[in-house]
Design a protein around this nucleic acid. Structure first.
Length: 476
RNA sequence: GGCGCCGUACCCAAGUGGCUAAGGGAGAGGUCUGCAAAACCUUUAUGCAGCGGUUCGAAUCCGCUCGGCGCCUCCA
């Protein structure tokens, strides 16, 4: 079975064929080249932004799970109107400003268990690559100057609008564009290189003094890193037009070859039924939520679990539900670790493991249907729990199930939580309390036993008695 | 105004032509247990926004209606 993913360019779920030439085995393919539109580092990214970044991470992890190699780039936009304005507001240099928010962004990615990608180019460090493409566009007649800026003439690029399916840009009713107000020949034309403004950062280059237009950055970086047609380009749906449309126009006009084979767009995160965005002010940052006591792990679970092509309404209640669901994993892992039974492995376990891999892969191969895939994982958990109840698992079985879960978690990234030992809790003290409680129970002093349970609960520690002994865990 | 998406149980969410409509959360009953928890078992949509139509057969295809959202402008 092949991995199929919806391609915005073709409007259908296309098989992923890295390099564009079909091979017999996945291992024969060249690395999948992926470019993801990264953040503009002004202020804190919100979790709507992180939905896309978590998706990118899930995608690359799944590709690796399926045996592909990946070569993935994500840019950092560190010069544009917003970053310039932000630096002015905070009265610091642009570099200082963008470095601050880039560092914060990286911390958030780490908190969400997002893997580092192979390349993270910054706009300000890629000016040379931008000049190269702009120069080519000028030479080929795909650029015109006006008031010191360079623009791309959209009408010269015949397939413009193919990605967004906006053949001739429709004008919103009741809103008329006065073309005289635009310093361009056509309202659709976009800027490649912006003329310097008073007191603003600029670069003195062969194509003139100024700074990059928004779209040129991605085209230039893709060329610089990957040299030729890339396999996958990802981003939020709001980038389809005009950003990605313009990237295609520039790159294909300049280099005369296909820019990207497979366009993947992630739908919006909604809050109270409307798009979460900075301009609307209806957003949560990761830090807001962590400060309220929700875990990054639960947020990752929530963001991963929603299918990427569906708008997803973000709610606090949703995080709580995710929290509860994660406890099923935690409890299963605790139970698996406790299995001590020696002896030959249960012959049914390998079949069970084979089928979870087959079911999971079958589901996710279908346009990354992770919701169904996770349903399969929960069914697996259920089956394993039942076998534990019936004492049908040996130590070896438990280890092989644990290994299978680790492989699946290489994709999901939330089953095994790191740092389960929370700081501020003295394990030895907990153990001594448990011992005291055991003594109280043995002498049938249940009042004392229950008091100890309450004392620990106040510290967020939950006691659970099993047949052999008492285990403890930290309340989420 | 143009283009597109969505409406499945108390909540979240798969399923897009054919056995009894996945899965998670929450609730109820049960097993186990000094208590509690965990886990397991049972249970909660003759029903898939509404109305028509196509079909032997539709949540799934077509039409209309209602409701919600997105893009067309910086935006993940």
């Amino acid at each position: 079975m092949a991995l199929r993913i919806y391609n915005t360019l073709t409007g259908s779920a296309d098989e992923l064929v890295p390099g564009g030439i079909k091979k017999e085995k996945i291992g024969d393919y060249p690395p999948v080249t992926i470019y993801s539109c990264g953040p503009t580092v002004y202020g804190y990214a919100h979790i709507g932004n992180f939905r896309t970044f978590v998706f990118n991470d899930f995608l690359r992890r799944y590709l690796k799970f399926r045996g592909f190699r990946v070569d993935h780039a994500m840019n950092i936009t560190d010069v544009d109107d917003k970053t310039i304005a932000g630096a002015v507001t905070e009265s610091i240099s642009l570099k200082e400003y963008t470095e601050r928010y880039t560092a914060i962004f990286q911390e958030d990615l780490t908190a969400l268990n997002i893997e580092p990608v192979e390349h993270t180019p910054k706009a300000t460090e890629s000016i040379g690559a931008m000049i190269e493409i702009i120069d080519l566009l000028v030479k080929k007649g795909y650029a015109y100057a006006m008031e010191g800026s360079l623009y791309f003439p959209v009408d010269r690029f015949k397939s413009y609008g193919r990605l967004s399916r906006l053949n001739s840009r429709e004008i919103k009713s009741g809103l008329r564009y006065d073309t005289d107000e635009y310093a361009k020949d056509d309202v659709r034309d976009f800027v490649l290189w912006k003329a310097p403004k008073e007191n603003e950062i600029y670069w003195d280059t062969p194509v003139g003094k100024g700074r990059p237009g928004w779209h040129i950055e991605c085209s230039a970086m893709i060329r610089k890193i990957f040299k030729t047609t890339i396999d996958i380009h990802t981003g939020g749906v709001d980038l389809i037009f005009p950003h990605h449309e313009n990237e295609i126009a520039q790159s294909e006009a300049a280099y005369g070859e296909q820019f990207v084979r497979h366009w993947i767009h992630v739908e919006h995160l909604l809050v109270n039924g409307s798009k979460m965005s900075k301009s609307l002010g209806n957003f949560y940052t990761l830090r807001d939520l962590l400060a309220k006591g929700y875990s990054a792990r639960s947020i990752r679970f929530l963001l991963v679990s929603a299918h990427y092509r569906k708008q997803f309404n973000f709610t606090i209640d949703g995080i709580s539900q995710a929290d509860q669901a994660l406890e099923r994993f935690d409890n299963l892992l605790i139970r698996l670790k406790e299995i001590k039974k020696e002896g030959a492995p249960n012959p049914h376990v390998p079949n069970l493991i084979d089928s979870i891999f087959a079911d999971f892969t079958g589901a996710v191969d279908d346009d990354l249907n992770i919701s169904r895939g996770m349903g399969m994982v929960f069914e697996f958990i259920h089956a394993v729990n039942t076998m534990i109840n019936d004492e049908k698992l040996t130590r070896m079985d438990a280890d092989s199930i644990m290994l299978a879960l680790k492989k699946i978690d290489a994709v999901l990234g939330f089953i095994f939580s790191e740092g389960s030992e929370k700081p501020g809790i003295d394990a030895a003290w907990v153990e001594s309390m448990i011992a005291e409680r055991l003594a109280a129970r043995n002498s049938k002093d249940y009042g004392r036993a229950d008091a100890i349970r309450r004392i620990l609960l106040e510290k967020g520690i939950i006691l659970e008695d099993t047949r052999e002994d008492t285990r403890w865990k930290i309340r989420n």
